[in-house]
Computed example of a mutant assay.
Amino acid sequence: MYFSKALVLAFAASALAMPTQDTKPQKRAGVLTATTYDNFQVSDGVAGNALAEVNANFPIDQNDLAGVDANDLAIILAARVTAEDAETGTGGFNDAIDAAGSSTTAGKALQVGKIKNKVLKLQLEVLGLQIQQAQTGEDNSDKIAAEQTKLNTNIKLDEAAAGQTSQSIDFSGNDDPSN
């Protein structure tokens, strides 16, 4: 069987025109917008689904962490700091629980909210470390494992309290990386 030169050239041209697989991670446009703690906190409502609530507020494609936008990473890191401040800082959950009394109805709802806030803080910590590792190649495995253990503990506490009232705090803070 003989192929004409035109047919061979057509096959060659189509092969050259085919897309090639690029092994470099593709950066995606940012999906997060800086906002106040009140808008990204997950402590209101009821317990039982804190991790899903966090992931809904921070919808990062966890299958392509190397492609996460730099500003999204900065927002995640800033939100983690704010969530920690909301737990332990002045006017945070610890102060609110002390003021309400841990055995009161209000104190118990605040304690449930604090656990949900810990899920927020720890999920953002793990996510930030994973993104940094994927983007820089820096080995964060030990840190990730330690924080994941804490996260898993708090997820279990949240799930065990499923349906219980959860109360947030009035806390001033944001996830704006420029602050």
Results as ranks from 00 to 15, higher is better:
Gly137Tyr: 05
Leu127His: 02
Ser43Leu: 09
Lys27Thr: 14
Asp139Gly: 08
Thr90Cys: 01
Gly45Tyr: 10
Ala146Ser: 14
Val126Ile: 01
Asp61Ser: 06
Ala86His: 03
Thr82Glu: 02
Gln123His: 13
Gly30Asp: 01
Ala134Phe: 02
Gly163Glu: 00
Ala96Gly: 12
Leu65Arg: 03
Ala160Val: 08
Lys121Phe: 11
Ile75Asp: 04
Ser43Lys: 08
Val54His: 01
Ile169His: 05
Gln41Met: 11
Gly163Leu: 03
Thr104Cys: 05
Leu127Met: 05
Asp170Tyr: 03
Thr90Asp: 10
Lys116Trp: 08
Asp98Val: 07
Ile60Val: 12
Thr35Lys: 09
Ala56Ile: 01
Thr35Ala: 11
Thr149Gln: 15
Leu127Tyr: 02
Ala99Thr: 13
Glu125Asn: 12
Gln135Pro: 05
Leu32Val: 01
Leu73Phe: 00
Gln167Asn: 13
Thr165Tyr: 10
Thr35Leu: 05
Ser102Lys: 13
Gly89Ala: 14
Gln167Ile: 03
Gln123Asp: 15
Ala70Trp: 00
Asn55Asp: 13
Asp44His: 08
Ser43Trp: 07
Asp170Trp: 00
Lys27Ala: 12
Val31Pro: 00
Ala83Thr: 04
Lys27Ile: 14
Leu32Arg: 04
Ser102Leu: 00
Asp142Arg: 10
Gly30Tyr: 03
Leu120Pro: 10
Ala86Val: 08
Ser103His: 07
Ile131Pro: 03
Glu84Val: 12
Ala66Arg: 09
Val68Pro: 03
Gly173Ser: 10
Ala74Thr: 02
Asn174Cys: 04
Gly163Cys: 03
Leu51Asp: 05
Ile131Thr: 07
Ile131Phe: 01
Thr82Ala: 06
Lys114Ser: 09
Asp64Asn: 15
Gly137Leu: 06
Gln148Pro: 11
Ser102Arg: 09
Thr36Trp: 00
Thr136Glu: 10
Gln130Val: 01
Ile115Asn: 14
Gly89Phe: 00
Gly113Ser: 09
Lys114Val: 02
Asn152Leu: 06
Asp142His: 03
Leu124Trp: 01
Asp69Gln: 05
Thr33Ala: 13
Gly91Cys: 14
Ala66Lys: 10
Ser103Tyr: 09
Ala50Trp: 04
